[in-house]
């Protein structure tokens, strides 16, 4: 008991030594956010393509940067609450002498899960200027319902 109260000193729990490290990291992130004005560590699963997910009342929006990839070359499927994106980027080799070759080709596939069921029949996707946008309507059954309070 005495030992425990010593470890718990001063007030923070000591369940895991990593709690403290995580707290320090959060505080450092918060500090650098204040300096640069934007999130320092973007959340990333590290899987191509990188996506930005936004939402409004009715839909989720998934956007990915896929330069040089035609929309019909991307395979997309929706199941329940997840979206899978797969495809391949092919770069036709140019004739001539390469000075630089930085653009990369290859296959990709990724699955993104949402916290809500998706209305599969109404999912729409479009691509413009190398940005793929997928609009996923939230399922009607899971949308929050307004509850009217009756006056007694």
């Amino acid at each position: 008991m005495i030992l425990r109260s010593v470890i718990n000193w001063p007030t923070r729990g000591w369940r895991s030594p990593f709690d403290e490290l995580e707290r320090i990291q959060r505080e450092m992130d918060w500090l650098s956010e204040g300096l640069t004005g934007r999130p320092s560590t973007e959340f990333s699963a590290g899987v191509f393509p990188l996506v930005n997910v936004t939402e409004d009342k009715d839909n989720y929006y998934v956007r990915a940067e896929l330069p040089g990839i035609k929309a019909d070359k991307v395979d997309m499927s929706v199941t329940g609450n997840s979206l899978s994106i797969a495809g391949e980027r092919k770069i036709t080799p140019e004739n001539g002498d390469y000075h630089r070759r930085e653009r990369e080709e290859g296959k990709f596939s990724r699955i993104i899960s949402f916290p809500m069921q998706i209305d599969q029949s109404k999912v729409e996707a479009q691509a413009s200027d190398g940005i793929l946008t997928v609009v996923l309507p939230k399922s009607e059954t899971e949308k929050p319902r307004q509850i009217a309070v009756k006056a007694a």
């Binding site: 940067e65 330069p67 040089g68 770069i91 140019e94 002498d97 390469y98 000075h99 653009r103 200027d129």
Partner: peptide, 20 residues
Amino acid sequence: AVDIVETDQEVTVLADMPGV
């Protein structure tokens, strides 16, 4: 990211600029 290719006739620059 760019690719730069040169032939006798011309220099071709390919640049990935998604969203532009």
